[in-house]
Design a protein around this nucleic acid. Structure first.
Length: 806
DNA sequence: AAGTATCGAATTTTT
DNA sequence: TTCGATACTT
């Protein structure tokens, strides 16, 4: 499969000539009139290297998509000759949609628009043998990776107390990000991980090959390695991709950079879009240097700056600009806007983290109601952006108490949840019985009485015969090596797996999709097997394996949710032809946007907020040590601080109309009280664009200046009042303030909530679990939870415990 | 092999 | 404080 004629047909471009035909027909270029001069320049400069420096909110996606349309319209390239790379599936999807909309038809004919990883999977499946793999290799998730590495560490006799496997994983990932194969790791770095780093890395790679598996880093690393070792293969692609476009270039790592350079080697038509000021993934291997060096890397490069901002008010932009000015290594950009003045950025200090959460809760109410002299905001318009996810908790607790609907964005994602991974491991094992990692994951889940010893026996049996673990288990059973109740359970498991597998071969396949990848598997018709759809099969697997039962018998508060998720997983299968297609999809597309009903405040990390925008943004926790993060500064020094500053910049520029920054003098960290100084970034806010608010409470509001002097006063105060007695007093005052003035809550909630619970009733709460009602105050109930202690909660979030399935 | 206790650690996480 | 992993107990 190396000729490009085949490639052409394979990718579906030939079957869909209509796209290019249509583009050809579209003579006029009205889309160009929608652009400002800078955008237009970026769109029309099609040939040669181009760096599009696009500040926050300057319409870079628009420019990027228009550029693609323009390429097609001017016949510079056919849809399948354009390589357009993004980092996230979401970005890829959006681009695809927008291009499709502009062309007036779905952009299905662009097979090479996707994430780095999904494109690399395509390439690697084609040339797998050049990397010592079969083209149906599996892609491991972090869980699998870690399990594998742990085994190697153990085998090497390393004390994983002192040298956690997790650390080695990070080291290896780091090398892969830098495109370093074991042989290429520089001597200076080889000392990592107790001097065994490189050795274990090599072993790990060997093991992956044995398993016919790759990790995320490998997807790029293998492709780069193949390109470097096989110039003929590289050249085909170099010639094929006439135009290359890259989104979020500031986030590329070395491997991605090399990949791009190699591919752009012939035509040199590469257009990178990015913003050096928004590089916040350095800790993950991203190299700001890539974007800073662009003009050197690609001689004759044109740099276009997109500086007109369509998102935020001048005050917000001024605040952001002033903060980011503190960074040294910048390409330089100044955002401007035609927007109305609007509100100044608001700054407020609080006594402690709880008060901060309380204040923000009240402020959201005010902003929502249209007080503050602004238009009323919907809860969907409001976001709280934190530096570290543990900060979210204070807000969740507070919002739960006052009944403010919220959603946490970017927590553990659907496919990363324990129960989903378990279920997927079963599916994996059914579609590919040689998937040892999947087997290890579920042999004893649910409990089958197969402990360490039994599993070791299986390992040995498998290894001595050179077969998969499933086969090894069969052998071990036949030889009577496994005893006790485990034997029966294991036999059942092995037989079940075979039986389920037989069911997958039912006459289900209707191969018509344009992306069918022939993995060499032979679709056979099996006779005598019941005809079941993959959806039914999935359900059968979960039921017959006892996995569903296991959760039904679990009486922890989260069990019902897990069962829900499993149901949702089975529903998802509807979108796929078969289990295999589903698994392939999931390994790369880990996101699953669940639409929620009703408007909700969003809570997320600053990292998760990149690329998003909200009319009103709250930025809490601006304290030195927390933000900028102490660890970041300790580990990466000035570089770390600058990345933190970019994070501040990203945070501020998410806001369209209202941006509120806050900090607290005291915060409970790991159960210990700590006091802290306001963030140094607070000092970098420009005074004439900032309104300093005074906290509403009686305490903690003494100082109010933005100057560092005022700040020091505050810190001193904090020390004085840091005694336990004071804190108890504050806590009590806080409690009183809580129940008195706040009765102006959503009446909707009140109506159906008030009388539905009685004293002493047993109830269930999504987050806190089971408990009993010990007090009622309107729609707020005091609940004594079995696990979580006594809490005040709004009735809306409770259900009578009988509702909950066991 | 499974349940319980104890100890230790706790940024950020696009794929 | 809470989570998780490990070690010890039954």
């Amino acid at each position: 499969m190396s000729s490009f004629d085949e490639m052409d047909a394979f990718e579906g471009a030939a079957q869909q000539p209509s796209l290019s035909a249509r583009a050809m027909a579209a003579r006029p270029m009205p889309y160009l009139d929608d652009l400002n001069p800078a955008q237009r320049e970026a769109v029309e400069m099609l040939d040669g290297p181009v760096l599009m420096l696009a500040g926050a909110g300057t319409g870079k996606t628009k420019a990027l998509t228009t550029r693609i349309v323009h390429l097609l319209n001017t016949h510079k390239a056919r849809p399948n000759e354009i390589l357009a790379v993004t980092f996230t599936n979401k970005a890829a999807r959006e681009m695809k949609n927008r291009v499709g909309r502009m062309l007036g038809q779905p952009a299905e004919g662009m097979p090479w628009l996707g994430t780095f990883h999904s494109i690399c999977v395509k390439l690697l499946r084609r040339h797998a043998e050049l990397a010592g793999l079969k083209s149906n290799f599996t892609i491991l998730d972090t869980d699998d990776q870690l399990r594998l590495i742990k085994q190697l560490v153990q085998a090497a006799g390393i004390d994983d107390k002192r040298w956690p496997a997790r650390l080695l994983l990070n080291v290896i990932d780091g090398w892969k990000n830098r495109a370093l194969t074991p042989g290429k790791v520089p001597a200076a770095d080889a000392g990592a991980y107790n001097n065994k780093g490189v050795e274990l890395y090599a072993q790990y790679q060997t093991r992956l090959k044995e398993l016919n598996a790759v990790d995320f880093g490998d997807l790029l690393l293998h492709v780069v390695t193949i390109f470097q070792a096989h110039p003929d293969v590289l050249e085909q692609y170099q010639r094929w991709f006439r135009y290359i476009m890259v989104d979020e270039y500031q986030d590329t790592n070395v491997a991605q950079y090399l990949w791009l350079r190699l591919l752009a080697g012939v035509h040199k038509n590469i257009c990178c879009v990015g913003d050096d000021d928004q590089s916040i993934y350095g800790w993950r291997g991203a190299e700001v240097g890539n974007i800073l060096r662009f003009e050197k890397d690609f001689p004759g490069a044109h740099v276009v700056r997109l500086e007109q901002n369509y998102r935020s008010t001048p005050h917000i932009l001024a605040a952001a600009s002033n903060v980011i000015r503190g960074n040294a290594d910048r390409l330089g950009k100044e955002l401007w806007t035609n927007a109305e003045e609007g509100e100044k950025v608001r700054l407020i200090g609080h006594w402690d983290g709880e008060e901060e959460a309380r204040w923000i809760g009240e402020e959201i109410d005010a902003v929502q109601g249209g007080t503050r002299g602004m238009r009323p905001f919907s809860l969907d318009d409001i976001a709280i952006l934190v530096r570290a996810s543990h900060q979210m908790r204070a807000f969740e607790d507070r919002f739960l108490t006052i009944g403010l609907p919220y959603k946490v964005i970017g927590g553990p994602r659907f496919y990363e949840r324990l129960e989903i991974r378990d279920a997927m491991a079963y599916f994996r094992l059914v579609t590919s019985p040689e998937d040892d990692l999947a087997f290890e994951r579920i042999v004893n889940t649910p409990k089958r009485g197969l402990g360490d010893k039994a599993q070791q026996t299986i390992q040995i049996a498998a290894r001595s015969s050179g077969v998969s673990l499933v086969e090894g288990a069969r052998i071990a059973l036949d030889q009577g090596l496994i005893k006790g109740k485990g034997a029966g359970a294991l036999r059942k498991l092995v037989e079940d797996l075979a039986r389920w597998r037989a069911m997958t071969r039912g006459p289900v396949v209707e191969a018509n999709d344009d992306e069918v990848i022939d993995d060499g598997g032979e679709p056979q018709l099996a006779f005598g097997q019941p005809e079941v759809s993959h959806i039914e099969l999935a359900q059968i697997i979960l039921d017959e394996s006892g996995y569903t039962t296991m959760w039904q018998n679990t009486k922890t508060p989260e069990a019902p949710g897990r069962l829900e998720n499993l149901k949702e997983l089975v529903n998802q299968l509807d979108n796929f032809e078969n289990l295999q297609g589903f698994l392939e999809h999931v390994s790369l597309v880990m996101d699953n946007e669940q639409e929620s009903d009703g408007a909700k405040v969003s809570i997320m990390t600053l990292h998760a907020a990149k690329g998003l925008e909200f009319p009103a943004v709250f930025l809490p926790g601006w304290e030195d040590g927390l933000f900028p993060s102490q660890r970041s500064m300790d580990e990466s020094g000035l570089k770390g601080l600058e990345e933190e500053r970019r994070l501040a910049y990203v945070g501020i520029t998410r806001a369209e109309e209202l941006c509120t920054i806050s900090f607290a003098a005291n915060r409970r960290v790991f159960g210990q009280w700590q006091n802290s100084m306001p963030s140094r970034f607070v000092d970098e806010l420009p005074e004439n664009h900032v309104d300093v608010l005074t906290p509403s409470g009686l305490y903690g509001g003494g100082a109010g200046g933005v100057s560092s002097q005022g700040i020091e006063t505050r810190a001193a105060e904090a020390n004085v009042y840091n005694s336990p007695g004071w804190k108890r007093l504050q806590a009590r005052q806080g409690q009183r303030g809580l129940s008195q003035p706040k009765e102006s809550r959503n009446t909707v909630i009140d109506l159906n909530a008030v009388s539905s619970f009685t004293l002493g009733e047993r109830v269930f709460h999504q987050k806190f679990g089971y408990g009993a009602v010990i007090g009622i105050e309107g729609d707020k109930l005091e609940i004594e939870f079995e696990k979580a202690g006594t809490k005040k909660v709004v009735a809306k979030f409770l259900s009578a415990s009988d509702d909950v399935p066991f």
